[in-house]
Design a protein around this nucleic acid. Structure first.
Length: 271
DNA sequence: CCTATAGCCTGACGGC
DNA sequence: TGCCGTCAGGCTATAG
């Protein structure tokens, strides 16, 4: 589930539940591939400290660690891959399946990072901006500094298909398979349209729709069943029909991902 | 520089 | 029932 709105919902969730509680224990369960550092280092970094604040960039969640003065600035980095999530709970019987990182707080509550498929990432870093640079992440899609002019600049000269363009984290950080479908659906652009073949008005429409769709999804905590029926997301499955004209939705591969679209409202534009 | 493709990881589901 | 292929809202490395 984790695209920008989902990660933002998790950020708010962690922010609301897990700040300012001392971490007493750290458990790792079959988490090797998720860890950049040695597991022992991760535990050493976390135990005795607490979470002070949160920040998100694209699909990455950063949690600042508070604590001993002699320790350097540090942030826990969480990336959720395709199946990751967070759960805060009190009773150990509520421990979720496939939890890879389990934190025990001083007052008896627990926070679990769980992920069935180990495609995510867990590590501790000292500098968020350096991390974003190192990963060559593009601007966060919802960053207010990322305005229309900046968007037009990133699109300039790009021959990629619209869907691939929106999903490229080096270009814009935060949009994945599902929300790229939504943005293109709402702008009436076929997912295989080449970015450099779009007229300026369509490109501008994509930009504004991108901001609006992501914002709206955050407002409902990225829960698909809370999104408007007029979105394509609730209908994004085999047998799904366009909520605006009733046409059977089609599915095509774009960059080896499944793109759902309405063949009536999203006509392919040849280059 | 750019874009497209395989591979990583694990489980669910449908067809034979 | 068991096996096999495909698919799943991720990213990186590599090939063209």
């Amino acid at each position: 589930m984790p695209e920008l709105p989902d990660v933002e919902a998790m950020r708010q969730y962690l922010q609301a539940t897990s700040l300012h509680q001392q971490i007493e224990g750290v458990e790792l369960h079959a988490a090797e591939v998720l860890l950049e550092d040695e597991a022992r280092e991760l535990k050493k970094e976390l135990v005795g400290r607490s979470f002070a604040s949160t920040r998100r960039h694209g699909k990455y969640l950063f949690v600042a660690l508070d604590g001993e003065e002699d320790k350097a600035e540090a942030h826990l980095v969480l990336h959720f891959g395709m199946t990751g999530g967070l759960k805060y709970f009190q009773e150990l019987e509520d421990e979720p399946e496939y939890d890879r990182l389990l934190l025990h707080f001083a007052h008896g509550y627990h926070l679990a990072y769980q992920a069935m498929r180990k495609l995510g990432e867990i590590q501790v870093i000292d500098d968020i901006d350096a991390f974003i640079d190192r990963r060559e992440l593009g601007p966060d899609a919802l960053d207010s500094d990322f305005d229309l002019a900046a968007f037009q600049e990133t699109a300039d000269g790009r021959r990629a298909m619209a869907k691939s363009f929106l999903m490229d984290q080096h270009t814009i950080a935060g949009i994945g398979n599902v929300y790229s479908d939504e943005i293109l659906f709402q702008t009436g652009v076929h997912p295989r349209t080449k970015i450099n073949s779009l007229d300026p008005e369509s490109l501008e429409d994509i930009f504004h729709t991108m901001k609006k769709v992501l914002q709206e999804a955050i407002e409902v905590q990225a829960q698909p069943d809370q999104l408007p029926e007029s979105f394509i997301i609730p209908h994004r499955h085999e047998d799904g029909r366009c909520p605006r004209c009733g046409t059977d939705l089609e599915r095509v591969k774009v960059s080896s991902r499944s793109a759902y679209f309405c063949p009536n409202r999203q006509q392919k534009k040849e280059t």
